[in-house]
Simulated scan of single mutants.
Amino acid sequence: MKWFDLVEVAGATLVAAVLLVVLYSLGVRLTAIAGDARQKSPGMVRSLAYACFAACGIAVLFGIYLIVPYFSK
Rank of each mutant, 00 (worst) to 15 (best):
S47F: 04
V21L: 08
A55Q: 02
A51W: 03
L20F: 00
D36W: 14
V15N: 06
L14W: 06
R38P: 03
T31V: 06
P42V: 06
L26P: 09
Y70G: 13
K73V: 15
L6E: 11
L19K: 02
W3R: 08
V18I: 09
Y24L: 14
A37Y: 14
S47W: 01
I58Q: 12
A34L: 03
Y70A: 12
G27R: 03
F4S: 05
C56V: 05
M44C: 03
A17G: 03
R29P: 06
A32N: 04
V9N: 07
A32G: 03
K40I: 07
A17Q: 08
Y65R: 07
R29G: 02
A10E: 08
E8D: 11
M1I: 12
V22A: 01
G57V: 02
M1K: 05
R46N: 08
F53M: 03
D36I: 09
A49D: 01
G43A: 00
A10G: 11
L19S: 06
G43N: 04
L66V: 12
Y50I: 08
A59F: 03
S72Y: 15
L19G: 00
S72V: 15
R46T: 01
A55E: 11
A54E: 04
S72M: 14
M1T: 09
I33K: 09
L14Y: 03
R38T: 03
V22K: 01
G27C: 04
A12E: 12
A12P: 10
R46M: 03
V15S: 04
A54I: 08
L66M: 11
G43H: 00
G43M: 04
L19I: 06
I67D: 15
A59M: 02
I58V: 11
C52A: 00
R29V: 00
A16V: 11
I67C: 15
